[in-house]
């Protein structure tokens, strides 16, 4: 069974396509990167899969079920958002934010308790953030914020992990922690889908790469996708081939 299956997906904003006729399947237990230039529709694709954007044209299945019919979504989908989508002024601290990773398991009405606090604290230790557990979330650096959201996704213990731009402008420690987590998740046979700009680190880690620029340019193993021809098609003359 595919973890994620996207069929004939098109998304239009004011009659202008943001995504056009996208088809691909992510096998369970693999690690996939979605890459492409700015404005290529990478985040739109991710949000369509997550059902955060209404899909009118095309179908999306998660673990064999249409994504809008998926029950207990928190068991299947863990998500690390781009940092910009969060209200960092909200009067709440780091550990409370991490505990949100268990909200889905708690369901409506039930409040997080000792068990959730313990899980959150352990995750914070794992990502080197234990000493910040009582900081207000807005008081952290960009990399620290990302580690908080990694911890939150981690304690969700879902089947498929979605990460939006985890390598965009973070410190080297955060980058290392992120890579370590990806490896660990992969060893545990989780499926991982990452939207990223960072072409250089790609080859070593990913099983498949989805290269898009509104349309699908190529989908396959890194050596199949990262050809001069494909990169030219996606980026035009703007970017060079990644090294390594």
């Amino acid at each position: 069974m595919s973890a994620v299956k996207v069929s004939n997906l098109s998304i239009l904003y004011h009659q202008i396509p943001a995504l056009w006729d996208i088809n691909f399947e992510v096998p369970e237990g693999t690690m996939v990167a979605i890459i492409g230039p700015n404005g290529a529709g990478k985040s739109t694709l991710l949000k369509s899969i997550l059902n955060l954007i209404k899909v009118k044209n095309g179908e999306i299945e998660i673990m064999g079920t249409p994504h809008h019919k998926l029950r207990d979504k928190h068991k299947y989908i863990a998500y690390m958002p781009q940092r910009s989508s969060i209200d960092f002024d909200f009067p709440t601290n780091v550990i409370d934010v991490v505990m949100m990773g268990r909200y889905g398991h708690l369901g409506w009405f039930k409040r997080p308790g000792k068990n959730e606090r313990e899980l959150a604290m352990n995750a914070l230790k794992k990502f080197g953030m234990a000493e910040y557990s009582h900081r207000q979330i807005g008081e952290l650096s960009g990399g620290q914020k990302q580690r908080v959201f990694l911890a939150r996704a981690y304690i969700q213990q879902a089947d498929i992990y979605f990460l939006d731009e985890p390598f965009g402008g973070v410190d080297s420690k955060t980058e290392q922690v992120t890579l370590d987590l990806l490896k660990e998740l992969k060893d545990n046979n989780k499926t991982i889908i990452v939207v990223t700009h960072e072409l250089d680190t790609l080859k070593a880690y990913f099983d498949y790469i989805m290269l898009i620029n509104t349309q699908k340019i190529a989908f396959g193993t890194p050596s199949e996708v990262l050809t001069a021809e494909n990169m030219q098609a996606a980026y035009g003359g703007l970017m060079h081939m990644p090294h390594r």
Binding site: K47, L50, N51, L52, D72, K73, H74, I77, Y79, P81, S85, I86, D87, F90, T92, V97, M100, Y103, G104, W108, R152
Partner: peptide
């Protein structure tokens, strides 16, 4: 839903 409405949506709230 106030801090991160997208995440709330994914978790089923």
């Amino acid at each position: 839903t106030a801090i991160d409405s997208e995440y709330a949506h994914i978790l089923g709230f």
